[in-house]
Amino acid sequence: MYWPTPGIKKHPEKRWNQPDRIFFGFGACHILAGVFLEDTSFGGFYGEWIVPNDGLHGNHMYVTNGQIAFDFHGYSEREKLLAHYWRGHQFKFQGWQAKVVKIDFPLLDTAELNARKHLGPNQYFDDPIPRARRFIASKNPPPELQRIE
C-alpha cells in the first residue's frame, strides 16, 4: 500500500503532481470511480465506499460489479481488494474497522461530494477527469469483462 506524505492534501499542486496511483489512491478515488461509471461500457458496475468507524481514517471509493472491482490498483477481484485494504489499514492502525456501503449519490457532483468531505472535480489543481480517463484506458480489463460487453 502507498501512504502519502503527511499534509500533502493541503497543497493542491503537490497533491496533483503525485503519480497517478497515489493521486487516485489517496484523495481522488471518488473521481476515478465516478469517471469509470460515467464512461464504462461494462454493465452492472456501481460504486462502493469503505467507511471507517467513527474517529478513524482511511475511507476509499471504488467500483464493482460484485465480483470484479476497479480502483487505483486497476482491475482486481472485489474480495481481494477488500482483504488487501483491511490488512493494510489494520496493520498501520491498530483496531481499525470499517463498513462497506453502496454509493447512492453522483460521484462527480461537487455539492454531493463536499457534503461528504470530498473535493469535487472542479476543486483540484487541474481537471482530474481527463487524467482519470487516461488512467482507466491504460488498464486492460480482465477477460470475463471483455466477454460481457
Results as ranks from 00 to 15, higher is better:
1 M>G: 11
3 W>N: 04
3 W>R: 06
3 W>F: 09
4 P>T: 10
7 G>C: 07
8 I>Q: 08
9 K>G: 13
11 H>A: 03
13 E>R: 14
13 E>Q: 14
13 E>N: 03
14 K>V: 05
15 R>K: 13
15 R>C: 01
16 W>R: 05
23 F>Y: 01
26 F>T: 02
33 A>C: 08
35 V>S: 01
35 V>Y: 01
36 F>D: 04
36 F>M: 12
38 E>I: 01
39 D>I: 04
41 S>L: 04
43 G>Q: 15
51 V>K: 07
52 P>Q: 05
55 G>P: 07
56 L>I: 01
59 N>K: 03
64 T>A: 08
66 G>F: 10
68 I>Q: 14
68 I>D: 11
69 A>C: 09
71 D>L: 11
72 F>H: 12
72 F>G: 01
74 G>P: 08
75 Y>R: 03
76 S>Y: 10
81 L>N: 02
82 L>V: 15
83 A>R: 14
84 H>P: 03
84 H>Y: 09
84 H>C: 00
88 G>T: 08
88 G>E: 09
89 H>Q: 04
89 H>P: 05
90 Q>G: 06
91 F>I: 02
94 Q>R: 13
101 V>G: 00
101 V>Q: 14
105 F>G: 08
107 L>A: 05
109 D>S: 11
113 L>Y: 06
114 N>E: 07
115 A>G: 00
116 R>P: 09
116 R>W: 11
118 H>C: 15
121 P>W: 09
126 D>I: 00
126 D>R: 13
127 D>A: 07
129 I>L: 10
131 R>I: 14
134 R>E: 02
134 R>N: 11
135 F>I: 12
139 K>W: 03
140 N>M: 11
143 P>W: 13
144 E>S: 14
145 L>Q: 08
146 Q>S: 13
147 R>I: 14
148 I>F: 00
148 I>T: 14
149 E>V: 15
